[in-house]
Write a protein that binds this DNA or RNA. Structure first.
Lengths: 216, 216
DNA sequence: GCTTAAATTCAACGCATGATGAGTTTTAGC
DNA sequence: GCTAAAACTCATCATGCGTTGAATTTAAGC
């Protein structure tokens, strides 16, 4: 999963010019722009997302990101200015809040709890959608800037809609959020058993009444 | 809060011997053992606990710990071997599980939820008792070894007793743990409002029924 | 096709980190 | 009071980090 094979439209380029004993020290590729359309920026962001998700902001180094994207560290800088820039861009779509909100708010009020649990599980079970949230959560533990983003994300984007449309007190929404965040943490980060191996339906049965009580 | 003033039993020692222009580069104190009984080991552990709580395992550097304890980094090594040793020793009393368990299990079963919420709040409101748990939580997000310790702590020490004495299914205990951990995270780490500013009683009223439902 | 701009790598800087080994001063055992 | 051990600092190493500036190669605009 770590290695991304490039499709490579035509094998016509460089690599064979000085085949004997060139200074193949760093990254096995010469300087200069690569042929074909530019896809590197996206590759860097993808690698960044994975690494931030795995190690958090401080733990993921620019150099490791560059390595994973098979690129020189300076290129990361060229595109994003600095590490914070990479993080900000990589987090630029934790989850499309409107899409999620629509799904949850489409349900009748007496099934809010169930829909919320189902939606959380759906998002967290999909590695691509889980990554940015996990990155944000991990980073927010040790990095104040990430904590601000997380706070904003939790309050405004995710649970704010529920507050606005149903006039539910914020404290109750926080309690529901706490239940969901805590369970996700136990299940996906700490991998505490047996909740890490429970089925989705088990969790819905277990948690939906709680969330419903807070939001109903 | 960062600076710890040493009581210093008697002012009879060193410090004035070469007063003019010694090599006062590093730590303002010469080499050699200090007079009086040894209190440095504890000072290092206290500093370590604070810094691990604030920044997590990877974020807290040995050098920063040494700086906070007003000690040379090599001394930390001398006492604890390596960074992992410092962490392990600093975490050697997250919360005395038996004390906590006794308090919770002393309550009748129909008030388990209330007692659990009250106990969590009491521990987390006390900075000294909060520090090691916070350190463990923060560290467990990015450090596998800390995650193992945290898993063990959550499962065995804290909630294991409840499982054993009351024969409550582990999955339900996990759900209750998730609720509590999540709320603590929102309240004390991310400081999401309004739950960060809510009173203890508000939280008991809000959360106790949930926990009671899981454990009852 | 020439020129400008963008993509890409290389080499290096200054800094912080965890670790080690040697040296100095005090305490504790006898 | 001597001696062995413990406490303590200093200087240093190798490594990895974020960042910078210059050089090189390709793509785009005209």
């Amino acid at each position: 999963m770590t290695k991304a094979v490039r499709p490579d439209g035509s094998g016509s380029n460089g690599s064979g010019s000085n085949g004997s004993a060139g200074p193949e020290g760093r990254s096995g590729r010469g300087p200069g722009r690569r042929p074909g359309p530019t896809e590197t920026r996206e590759a860097i962001l993808a690698a960044a997302r994975d690494l931030f998700a795995e190690k958090g902001y401080d733990g993921a180094s620019l150099r490791a990101i560059a390595r994973a994207a098979e690129v020189d560290p300076a290129l990361v800088h060229h595109f994003f200015g600095n590490k914070e820039g990479v993080f900000t861009q990589a987090m630029r779509f934790p989850v499309d809040p409107s899409e999620v909100a629509a799904k949850i708010l489409g349900a009748p009020r007496e099934r809010l709890g169930e829909m919320m649990v189902r939606t959380f599980l759906e998002v967290w079970d999909d590695a691509d959608r889980r990554a940015p949230i996990l990155a944000l959560l991990r980073s927010a533990m040790t990095n104040e800037r990430a904590a601000v983003m997380m706070r904003q994300f939790v309050s405004t984007a995710l649970f704010g809609k529920v507050h606005e449309t149903h006039r539910i007190p914020m404290l109750r929404i926080n309690a529901a959020a706490g239940q969901m965040v805590g369970v996700m943490l136990l299940r996906y980060v700490l991998e505490v058993e047996p909740i890490a191996s429970a089925t989705g339906e088990e969790l819905v049965d277990l948690l939906a009444p709680t969330v419903q009580r807070y939001l109903g």
